[in-house]
Amino acid sequence: MTHHHLEIDSLRIALDGNVLLELDAHIGPGEILTVMGPSGSGKSTLLAWLAGFLAGDFEASGHAHLDGRDITHLPAEQRGIGLLFQDPLLFPHLSVAGNLRFGMPRATRDKPRQVETALEQIGLAGFGDRDPATLSGGQKARVALMRLLLSRPCAVLLDEPFSKLDTHLRQEMRQLVFTQLRQAGLPSLLVTHDRDDAASAGGKVIELTH
């Protein structure tokens, strides 16, 4: 297992001269840093900056290092940062297997077998040819997680990934996601406004106030 770590150095994001957010953080392998705050506190701006989608209107200073590599100015697809959204967002034009294959690096060996193994891991063996629209909410969420892991990211951003799930599913998905991320040794940053998410993640918590 590789030891990934994500560092955020004196980040400062401003909009029209007003400082939105200031942050310093170090996230080690398998660690989950939770960032909390009310809406408008700059949580999604932080994710956009880390993932490489920050709109041009924002002024950002500071650096992000992933495994010692400065990724601050890299295009999104070269950063090695994976993203899990509120919705599973399975590509509706691809099969379940097609979704899982979408993010796999070109050089991956024996893709069909890896896809099948991944499906077995989340209890969806034999679902490869299915239309994602026919899956249940929980099944979609698990496929989305596997698609993220199969793309071999070096760090992961979680954008309130459990907020749209039913209460019983929520607990189950938290378990699955956090366990998988820890096992893969990925530094993760979780953005949420749900205290239970933070407790369940078990890592450091930063509160953004504004």
Binding site: A51, E77, R79, L83, F85, S151, P153
Partner: peptide, 10 residues
């Protein structure tokens, strides 16, 4: 955005 974070170029 999803496509990009999964490693696809624009």
């Amino acid at each position: 955005q999803l496509g990009r974070t999964l490693g696809s170029s624009p």
